[in-house]
């Protein structure tokens, strides 16, 4: 019961934070889907499935937070790069501010409990 709750909680937390993570990575550089998954895994250890990342990218695109561009490759298989828009940057900053506030508040609460 306890383990199941913790596992579900971790999954939900990762899902919640994923759009912020994607936007912050796209702020640094434009990325294509596969590379985004690899980079997220490298940076955070999150093992994200394709079925999770592409619907989020599509949602962010529909909301105008990212644009996409097909770039031809020598291999003959083009890559679809995602680029952060100004709207996306604003959204990322807002999400980040809220995220930092929550972390701070929770940390304060946990520290208070310890005392």
């Amino acid at each position: 019961m306890g383990r199941k709750f913790i596992d579900n909680w971790i999954i939900q937390l990762k899902k919640t934070i994923l759009p912020l993570l994607i936007l912050s990575m796209l702020k640094q550089e434009r990325l294509y889907g596969y590379l985004l998954i690899v980079k997220i895994k490298e940076c955070t250890g999150f093992d994200i499935s394709e079925g999770t990342i592409y619907p989020i990218l599509n949602r962010l695109k529909e909301d105008g937070c990212v644009n996409s561009e097909w770039i031809e490759q020598k291999t003959g298989i083009p890559r679809k790069y995602y680029i952060l828009t100004q709207e996306g940057e604003k959204m990322m900053e807002e999400l980040n501010t809220y995220w930092q506030t929550i972390i701070q508040d929770i940390n304060n609460q946990i520290e208070y409990e310890k005392e």
Binding site: G33, L35, I77, P78, R79, K80
Partner: peptide, 13 residues
């Protein structure tokens, strides 16, 4: 667009 993106993903993986 979707076909190409899936194709590209499969290739990269």
């Amino acid at each position: 667009d979707i076909m190409s993106e899936i194709d590209s993903h499969i290739y990269e993986s």
